[in-house]
Amino acid sequence: MAQLSKRISERAVSVWRIYALIRFTIFLLVYIIVCFLLMKFDGPKWVVFLLAVLFLADLFLFVLLWPRWRWQRWRYDVREQEIEIEHGVWIIKRTLIPMSRVQHVDLKQGPLLKKYKLASITIFTAATVHEIPALDEQEAEKLRHVISAFVKVDDRDV
């Protein structure tokens, strides 16, 4: 199968890093509490080191590297007959949604996405929901119009 042509905005990497960092901070708080309790109740010291290693690995892998890998893998294409999406770092998944199955399209923009002038598109069929995250604002708006223009209700459908 041919590689899909379009990519999501590269600013997605920054946004995803911020998300990851927020999660990491929460984990870090838990980590500090656990360490504190271990010290206080004379727990085994090696657990603290193990956790520290895990946290460094987490920081390195999921905060620094993963968002970029994820962005590199994200591709999509919207044609008159169908929408195609490909994403995933560990599991690479490619999805095809026939245009006649699409029920409606949503555009979503949280505060963080707004700050980076990004928006995500959610595509609904009668059975599934698909998201194209972190598109450029204007691109997302355009895509939404394009998709709703392509959508025709198939009369065989319920």
Partner: peptide, 29 residues
């Protein structure tokens, strides 16, 4: 014409063996 979406996916291990998982959705979920 009843199929809502079709997806192929592969983990790295599957990819190494040139295998994929095929998933199909029909209404309702």
């Amino acid at each position: 014409y009843r199929i809502q979406s079709v997806a192929t996916s592969a983990t790295w291990l599957q990819k190494r063996k040139q295998l994929s998982t095929l998933a199909v959705a029909v209404m309702p979920k």
